[in-house]
Structure formats: structure tokens, C-alpha cells
Design a binder for these strands. Structure first.
Lengths: 236, 236
DNA sequence: GACGCAATTAACTAACTGGTACAAAGTGTG
DNA sequence: CACACTTTGTACCAGTTAGTTAATTGCGTC
């Protein structure tokens, strides 16, 4: 599997006269368009003809390169995961003290999800399908192995410093951070239609994010270390 | 609008010989089947013929009672919201002190969402559609007015007692509770396929729920009142 | 400069799917 | 018991959609 397509911009290959051989570019172009369409309409809702029309190439090429609709969707899903995970790798936290690192990670996740609504939508769609296409991809499995490694490292340092609780796993912390960050994007439509959009203003979003960080840090820290936080009785 | 259908079990009306007139029953039967199908396959993924086949009546009747696919979906959505909201009304919290009430509410929401995966899936699907069908229903608007009233009452009492922070709104508390409770069901497929299912065992779920409650209570309480919890400096 | 092969296009098809026409059968009421 | 109305089953249609057939065009290379 050496298909290193990065969705670059040279995916033209559609100039009627004088086209260049650029299979990778064409495939990337198809993937990019398909990602938008699948994210917007779902697997069964997306139309191959519509995808083809928005591509610089033709429907025949979609089948030429990707076989059928489902495999195209699978490739789109992989590409989406790769893009998002790649964007996460930039984050460097090892130089920060554990609590700061955890804060940064939570903030980053919240913002990162917010910046990638199409990815969120694809994951929503994939969950509607019970994750069967995700399971078929071994690439995604590999990508996600590293997803909580940052958090595990932070927790390890935090525990070593005697700051973090032992009974809250990195996985669970990741779950809580993901839940809020994901829900913030996935349920924006229904939530704001029902309860108004105050939480989706700039101030509302900052508040949600700050409080998420606060809660996660509060959960990770030992009661006696949590700046006075104690769960049993107030005993400083 | 006096369509009080409760999805009862007397929706048979299919006995070849000697049928009874039971329009409400037939409609409920259609709605129940359609809810399952839409929740399973989405709006465009669900098949009218498939719904009809699983009904005790025929496709003709679906169109007779509901007009077309989209209106059927809209009615299903309304029915789902009604069922869930009705189930919430049973919860009685006024007799509990604010902190206890908040705990109970969070726990209940977590469990309640967990018990209604089809509702969650319908909301997911509705979010894929940007909530346009939800917007068309004035019934759902009415139903949801009361959704955070319980929480508002709790917060009012909590503030009156000098326990709750002023800068955390009931709406935001509701958002945090909903986020985790919703995500827990909506993303179970992808999350467990990527990270394993430890968090979806009985113990894992209890842990998630307990920590959610802990975080929400911690967020709601004033720093100095939060059993020693302080954000600025540890000053009990 | 021509030949093999990758890349491309457009028209076509077979199946599916939402929706309908129409007639038959049952219900209840006077 | 007959008449008006409701309810249901069968067969059908027209538009859509995933997927294909087969011929064409351009590229690189010897």
C-alpha cells in the first residue's frame, strides 16, 4: 500500500485538450469531492453521478479507480482519518508539565474537531452503519493506535509526579474529551434549533471549551492534589 | 392535533378474514416499524417497501396515512421525541437537595439515553440532515421547552443556597450532560472498534457515568463550596 | 514515428424505488 | 338491508441510480 495521496491541488487532469497523465491527482480529486458529498449526504444519500459531475473527471474514472460506491466510501473514510490524525501529530506536549499538557490536549481536541466538521460527519455516518467500513480498514486501525499515546504519556508523567489519580484511565480521559468535542460538532444542528445558538457563539464556545478543560483536569487530578479538591469530605 | 397514539400493541388489523377498523392502531404499527427502519438505515437508506413488508398492513396504507416518505420520517421523529420526553417526565427531583438532584438528573440522562438507542440514532440522522425536519415540527419545539426546566429549577435552588456558581448556566450543564450521554450511544460502534470495548462493559459504563456525575457536580459547585475544590489557588 | 497500454469519454442498461390507479371488500348507520 | 364512506390489496409506472460496454484518445518508449 504505497498510495501516498495528499489531496494536493494539482488534481486537475480535466483540461479537454492536452491532458496530463496524473492518476494520483485524479484519484485525489475524486476522493476530495467524494468526501464532501458523503459527508453532506451520507453513504446512501450521496449520488455517484453528483460526485462525478463535481469532479474534474468522469464517472467512469470513479469505477476505474475505486471499483464501486462502497469501496470509494471506505477510501474516503480512510483519507479523512489520515488527514485528521496527521493534523494531530503536530501537537508537541512532552516539554510541558502534565497538567498543562492535559489542558493543551483537551483544548486542541476541542478546536481540532471544530475545524473538521466533515470528518465528524463521516464518523457520524460510519456509526450509523455500525462501523462496518471502518472495521474493514486496517489503515485506520494503525492510525488510531497513536491516538491516545500522547495522553498515555501525559498520564504516566502525571502519576509519576503523584498528581494524577490511578483510577482514571487515559482511555477514559480520552473518551470524555472526545465526547464533548465530538458532540459539539455533531449535534450542533439539533441542539441549536431546540435550545438556541447561545452556546455556538464565540463566547459560548469558549465557555464550553474552558469548562471542558476544567472538568477533565479536575477528573484527572488526585483529590488532595487538585488545588484543594476533595471528594469525601472537605479536608485541606 | 389530537393524535394521541401511544404505539400500543393492539396494532394488528391484518387478519385476512374479519378485520377491525383500527386506524390509530395501524398508524402506530407503521410508525413503530418505520422508526426501527429509519433508525437502522437513515432517511435515504430506509426503504418504503421494506417498512411496508414488516408492517401488518400494506405500502398503500403508508401513503394513505402519511403522504410520503419524508412526512413519515417527520412523524417518526416526533414520535421518538415524544416517547423519550414522556419517559423523562417521571423523574421527580424537587424533594432532593440541589446537589443530589443534579447527580440524579445526570445519572438518569446517561441511563435513559443508553436505553433508547433508536432515538439517539434518529437524532444522529437528523443532524446529518442539519435538523431541517426537526425544525418543521412545532410539536418538538413544545416538547423541548420542558427539557431543561428541571435543571433550571435545580440551579435556582442551588444558587439560592449559595452552593452553585453563577457563571455556569443550566443550559451549559445540560449540554455537558447531553454530550457525554449522547456520545456514549452514538459513537459506540467506532469507539469500541478502535479502542476496544472496555468502556462498554458494565464496569466501564458505571465508571463513565460516575465520573460524568463527578465532573458535572464539580462544574456546578462554587470553588469554595465544592468540598475544597478551588480553581485559583488552594484556599479552603 | 508507430505501437502497446494507460487513461478517458459517452451512451447504455438493468434493477430499484418512491409513488399511484383502481377496484374490491368491510363498516356502520339510517 | 342498502348506501356512503373507510380501508385494503394488486398491479403498475416513471424517474432514478449504480454499474457496464465498447470505442477513443493521448502518452511514453523503442
Amino acid at each position: 500500500m504505497n498510495d501516498d495521496m495528499m489531496l494536493n491541488e494539482k488534481a486537475v487532469a480535466g483540461g479537454r485538450s492536452g491532458w496530463k497523465q496524473d492518476p494520483a491527482g485524479v484519484q485525489n480529486n475524486i476522493l476530495a469531492v467524494a468526501m464532501t458529498e458523503f459527508a453532506a449526504n451520507g453513504l446512501s444519500g450521496a449520488r455517484i453521478d453528483e460526485i462525478a459531475a463535481k469532479t474534474h473527471t468522469s464517472k467512469r474514472m470513479i469505477y476505474y479507480y475505486f471499483g464501486d460506491k462502497e469501496r470509494l466510501y471506505g477510501r474516503v473514510l480512510e483519507e479523512a482519518y489520515r488527514q485528521v490524525r496527521t493534523g494531530e501529530e503536530a501537537l508537541e506536549l512532552d516539554h510541558l508539565p502534565p497538567v498543562e499538557a492535559l489542558k493543551r490536549l483537551a483544548e486542541f481536541t476541542f478546536d481540532h474537531h471544530s475545524r473538521h466538521p466533515d470528518f465528524i460527519r463521516l464518523v457520524m455516518i460510519e456509526n450509523i452503519h455500525h462501523g462496518v467500513y471502518l472495521e474493514q480498514s486496517e489503515l485506520i486501525g494503525l492510525l488510531n493506535v497513536g491516538a491516545i499515546q500522547k495522553l498515555e504519556a501525559i498520564c504516566q508523567r502525571g502519576r509519576a509526579d503523584g498528581l494524577f489519580r490511578e483510577d482514571v484511565s487515559p482511555l477514559e480521559l480520552h473518551w470524555h474529551i472526545s465526547a464533548s468535542s465530538f458532540f459539539n460538532v455533531s449535534n450542533r444542528a439539533t441542539f441549536s434549533r431546540i435550545f438556541g445558538s447561545t452556546l455556538y457563539t464565540v463566547d459560548g464556545q469558549r465557555s464550553l471549551r474552558d469548562h471542558l478543560v476544567e472538568m477533565v483536569v479536575g477528573l484527572a487530578l488526585k483529590p488532595e492534589r487538585a488545588k484543594g479538591r476533595a471528594r469525601g469530605a472537605a479536608r485541606p
